[in-house]
């Protein structure tokens, strides 16, 4: 509020509904004004310019637009941006640390888990959520967890290998630092 009293001009009164929402994106609090019909995927891509989140099918089928909402994978094309108000969103840009890749990213690099790369951000975020919950998944569990993410190159074999690679790497690292505190 800049003044205690301000008459709203007619044009503004008729204007589109706008809501102010605060979302923590990749650890940073962002406050934005959005129309309620704006999809979370569009807010991330066009609003926040984080174009690592891909919109593939736009019909809730493919999972390319998957982001983590409070740590759980969701399809950002099937959620309104206003619904993320007060929540934490992690996109693929938030996976890596300052200087090193996330083990899941390393796994995809090492095991050739991507061909065209379009589905990769969604795959990696779903994989991260799986490993956060289940650090030692079986191959079946990996396939099950990724069954909502489609790869049109059909490169599933290496995607699954990448996730298992990342799981092993994370477990090894946890062993080194004596995790399990």
């Amino acid at each position: 509020m800049t003044s205690l009293f301000e008459e709203v001009p007619r044009a503004e009164e008729d204007a589109v509904p706008v809501r102010t929402v605060s979302v923590t994106v990749n650890g940073e609090r962002r406050t934005v004004k959005v129309e309620p019909r704006l999809l979370l995927a569009h807010m991330i891509r066009h609003g926040l310019k984080l174009t690592g989140t891909h919109t593939g099918c736009d019909t809730s089928n493919c999972g390319a637009c998957t982001v983590l909402l409070d740590g759980r994978p969701v399809k950002s094309c099937t959620m309104l941006a206003v619904q993320a108000d007060g929540h934490e969103v992690t996109t693929v840009e938030g996976l890596a640390g300052q200087s090193e890749l996330h083990p899941v990213q390393e796994g995809f690099k090492d095991e050739h888990g991507l061909q065209c790369g379009f589905c990769t951000p969604g795959m990696m975020l779903t994989a991260k959520a799986l490993l956060d919950e289940n650090p030692d998944p079986t191959e079946d569990e990996v396939r099950w967890a990724l069954s909502g993410n489609l790869c049109r190159c059909t490169g599933y074999q290496n995607i699954v290998k990448s996730v298992l690679w990342a799981a092993k790497k994370q477990r090894a690292a946890a062993g080194e630092t004596g995790a399990g505190e």
């Binding site: 809730s60 999972g63 998957t66 909402l69 759980r72 994978p73 969701v74 399809k75 099937t78 959620m79 779903t126 099950w144 967890a145 990724l146 069954s147 909502g148 993410n149």
Partner: peptide, 9 residues
Amino acid sequence: VADPIVRNR
């Protein structure tokens, strides 16, 4: 029901 990601919502 649906797929694992849809089931989260």
